[in-house]
Each structure stands twice: as C-alpha cells, then as structure tokens.
C-alpha cells in the first residue's frame, strides 16, 4: 500500500472513531492493531497509529523490529546471582568487580532497579526479589528470591543490605520480614520516604508529608 492510501485510510478511520469499528479494515491490519492493543498503556487510537505507521516503513525496518522482538523474548532471562533481566548467565552489574563493595540493594522488580541505576548514586550490587509478600495474592517468602539473598549474604561478605521497597502494606511487610531475617548477618537499612525534590512543601499531599515528618533527621 502506498502512503497516500494509508493516509486516506487513517483519515477515514479517525473520523469514524468512537466505538471499535474494526470493520473496514483489511484482516492483516486488524490483526496488527489487535496485537498492539494488548500492550499495557495502549488504547485503540494509539494501536491504530502505530500499525499504520509501520505500514509506511521500509520492509527492512520491519524485519529489524520483528527480529528485535523475538531476540528479546528468547534471549533475555534472569541473572543467576541477582535475578535482574539479563541475556547472559550473570548480568553486567554483577560481573563488574568495582561494584563488589559489600553492599546489596534489595528491590521488588527490575523496573525499580533501573530507576535506582538512573541515579548513578548507588555503587553496590542489587538483588531483585521478584515481587512483594502478599498473602492475599498467595505470595509468601518462598515464592520470592529470599533464600538466594540469604545465601549471597553469607557467601559474598556483605556488610550492609539496603531495602528499597515501596511504602505500601506489602512493601513494609516485606521490609520488616527481611529486616528481622537478615539482622543476624549484616546491617540492614531502609530507604527514606518523603518529599520529591523540586516539589513545594505546600503542595505535598498529607500522607507523604506525615511520612516525611516521621522520617525526619537531626540537622
């Protein structure tokens, strides 16, 4: 299909938007839109935009895209030490000898790890639990990488563990549980909760402010 035809199709479709009129679409296109719509954060409008955009790309580009998808799915697994996403048996952070400084930061999943990594402040290594303790969802410590964490602490000469978990009931439960479990082996701390930088005190919500008051420290 040439790009003029695709533009026409897009315009005619967008003018009819409202419900989900996937009729009027040739089958392969409808299938592609449907696949995009299954992704998190993508609604019908964005799904169409992406699908129609791809139709305008050179075929080579599409091949690269498809290859990247498949390669990521088949090659990316978990680091056998810290359980961060990794294509190798051990991830880059765990392989880096400079980061072997006796400090482990415990996070719930790889997204949290990436957020902490962006700060460039933390020089130690990580441990990804794979979730938080929540009996309601049937998640107990045995389903998380807790045993492996204890093993690492005894094997790797760890002096400090930093717990960086969300301050929800489940996050706090996991922090308290791990705190008691690990105290005999090393020092355990928890990240502070409080005001985001660059925000004004007067605009902070009450819950954040009261948490920040609780976590106050001497000047």
């Amino acid at each position: 299909m040439n790009s003029v035809a695709a533009d026409d199709l897009r315009n005619s479709y967008i003018s009819r938007i409202g419900g989900r009129p996937l009729s009027g679409f040739t089958k392969p296109l409808a299938r592609l839109i449907d696949q995009f719509e299954r992704l998190p954060g993508i609604g019908p409008r964005t799904a169409q935009r992406l699908a129609l955009h791809l139709l305008n790309q050179p075929e080579e580009q599409i091949h690269q895209f498809a290859d990247a998808l498949l390669a990521a799915r088949t090659q990316v697994g978990q680091c056998q030490t810290c359980f961060h996403l990794s294509a190798d048996p051990e991830c880059e952070i765990c392989r880096n000898p400079e980061r072997r400084n006796g400090v482990i930061c415990v996070v719930a999943d790889s997204r949290d790890l990436l957020a902490l990594e962006r700060t460039r402040e933390f020089q130690g290594r990580y441990h990804v639990l794979g979730g938080l303790i929540s009996p309601m969802d049937g998640v107990g410590p045995e389903l998380l990488h807790v045993t492996e964490l204890v093993q690492r602490i005894t094997n790797e000469e760890i002096s400090e563990v930093i717990l960086a978990l969300t301050p929800s009931v489940e996050g706090d439960t996991t922090s308290l549980y791990l705190g008691r479990l690990l105290k005999p082996f090393c020092s355990v701390s928890r990240i502070a909760y409080g005001l985001p930088m660059g925000s004004e005190l007067e605009y902070a919500d009450e819950v954040t402010l009261s948490r920040a008051l609780e976590g106050r420290r001497p000047v």
Partner: peptide
C-alpha cells in the same frame, strides 16, 4: 492480609509467625 495468612496451609509455623510479627 492477616486473615489470608492464616488460611495459607503450605507455610511452616515459624514462617507464619515471622510474617505475623511483621
């Protein structure tokens, strides 16, 4: 969460009490 914890059968008593502590 607490009442669900009591219903869980597969965990050991020591583990249950450690979570109850939390």
């Amino acid at each position: 969460q607490r009442s669900q914890l009591w219903r869980q059968r597969q965990i050991s008593s020591a583990e249950r009490h450690a979570l109850l502590d939390a």
